[in-house]
């Protein structure tokens, strides 16, 4: 049985960071959970690439932000905000796959 991300995070969200990027924030319920997940190094480029079915090169940054006990993932938008065929202008509903994520945390 893994630990579900929804059980150890208080915020899981996505949003535009300008029209070309999507950014995902995972804010952990405590500094302890943040440190544990950070220590495991499980939120990495390969994880994001598999989760969202995108090439690793399109995962632009994964940054640990200690003051907020948060991990931030930024990806290149598959389609620029508002371009023809784009489906989430504000980028606010792209976080859902993270809600199903589980990790093995001892």
């Amino acid at each position: 049985m893994g630990t579900r991300l929804v059980d150890i995070a208080s915020v899981i969200r996505s949003k535009n960071a300008g029209p070309y990027e999507l950014t995902f924030d995972i804010i952990f319920k405590s500094a302890e959970w943040f440190e544990k997940v950070k220590g495991l190094g499980v939120i990495n480029k390969s994880f994001v690439s598999q989760l969202l079915c995108i090439p690793e090169d399109n995962v632009l940054a994964i940054i640990e932000f200690t003051p907020a006990s948060a991990i931030k993932i930024t990806i290149k938008r598959p389609i620029v905000s508002g371009d023809i065929g784009e489906t989430d202008v504000y980028g606010a509903q792209q976080h859902a796959p993270l809600l199903n994520t589980e990790f093995e945390i001892l």
């Binding site: 950014t23 932000f65 948060a70």
Partner: peptide, 16 residues
């Protein structure tokens, strides 16, 4: 502290 620090993350790619 969390709400303010968390806001620093909002809508940007690098919070630092």
């Amino acid at each position: 502290v969390t709400s303010v620090a968390a806001h620093t993350l909002y809508e940007k790619s690098n919070p630092y």
